[in-house]
Nucleic acid binder design. Sequence first.
RNA 1: GGGGGGAUACCAAAGUGGCCAACUGGGGCAGACUGUAAAUCUGUUGUCGUGAGACUUCGGAGGUUCGAAUCCUCCUCCCCCCA
Length: 404
Amino acid sequence: MNFKPVDEQLAVIKRGTVEIVPEQELIEKLKKSKKENKSLKIKLGVDPTRPDLHLGHSVILRKLRQFQDLGHEAILIIGGFTAMIGDPTGQNKTRPALSLEEVQENAETYISQAQKILDESKTTLVNNVDWLGDMTFMDVVQLSSKLTVARMIERDDFSKRFENNEPISVHEFLYPLAQGQDSVHLKSDVELGGTDQKFNLLVGRDLQKTDGQEPQVCLMMPLLVGTDGSMKMSKSYDNYIGIDEPANDMYGKALSIPDELIYTYFELVTDVSIEELESLKQKAEEDPRNTKHELAHTITRMYHGEKAAEAARKHFEETVIKKNIPDDAPEFHFESGSTVRLLDIISDAEMTSSNGETKRMMKQGGVSLNEEKIKDPGFEVTFENGKEYELKVGKRNFARLISG
RNA sequence: GGGGGGAUACCAAAGUGGCCAACUGGGGCAGACUGUAAAUCUGUUGUCGUGAGACUUCGGAGGUUCGAAUCCUCCUCCCCCCA
């Protein structure tokens, strides 16, 4: 491996990074690595509790990928064991512990999605069940003696729960130790994590020191703000863009982020070069509309390819800007001459979740047939030979009704 | 081991015998507006029914009552305080 100069590597590593603890140690490690022509071990632990990955997860995975591209060894730890504990970080309640089978299943989905971002051939996959699972109770007791309760309850998530009279289980205290033990086991040089992982990452450092190892450098990435512009991207807030989502949705959702986030998204979730980033900062301010389209295009391209990204743009323009019916709207056929209540058509097509909702939408002007708003819940459609209707229910629910 | 508090719709949280399909906030949905699926404003938000209305819902199971989310009994789960 021919490593790039340290300062070049550092520039890539620092892209989007919030904090490197301590940065000087990282520089030393990089120097040593180049000198000895030996790659660094970069550790990323993932919790396969929820297998659906979104752009928020991609931030950290992309960072791992960047390390790979710099020639370092990416170690992706599937937290099989830790998932069964449930990471308390940022939680206001105890996470449900998963069974071994669930973890296994989730892990597979997770890996297959993560490979879209990582360089599959160069990723070392491990599961911490393999070493944590073998520890004896005595081992655990000894390990836990290295961390004090006072330090644990300093943590925000615990102290908040404590104040709010919410339960904290003892086993949740063991989570950072388990994660730290991973670092000891793997002898990692760098561990990646979100800013919310700082505590856990630092425990890894401490444990390595106790073990006589050279401690890992902790690298924290920001938590990506979701499409709502305020909370971190998360499935439970429904402000996420999934990496498995259809191109059209991806494109549209990317466009819905607030303007202030355009640059951040370019920086954290796209593969545009560092040089390009510079110019994008200004572009985003001067011409947010087009820059955001460029962002949406870039993101969609990364996961679906150039062609699909282009198609997604067209789809967006047609349906959202021009408010036209998309080409791929589902079609429903009706016998010519028949008369059917519109309410029933919508219900059969499952375009709403209940008749009450349909009626409500009708009253509010959310249902239209061939551009004409239908407000009467009893409205009936008569299908004459060859006649076609374009049905719109709500903002983006379309269907074509065809007779014959 | 002892004492106290709690469980309400997607979430948070009022309601403590009829005016409750249930205040309010968040979220969701719709309309207007917009470069946008953003922001803002307005409306709406159990199911069935064109409608009148009917039915189901307030941790679970029973009971009292003309009538219960509200009262009683038992059960399940959770939190706090003292030891």
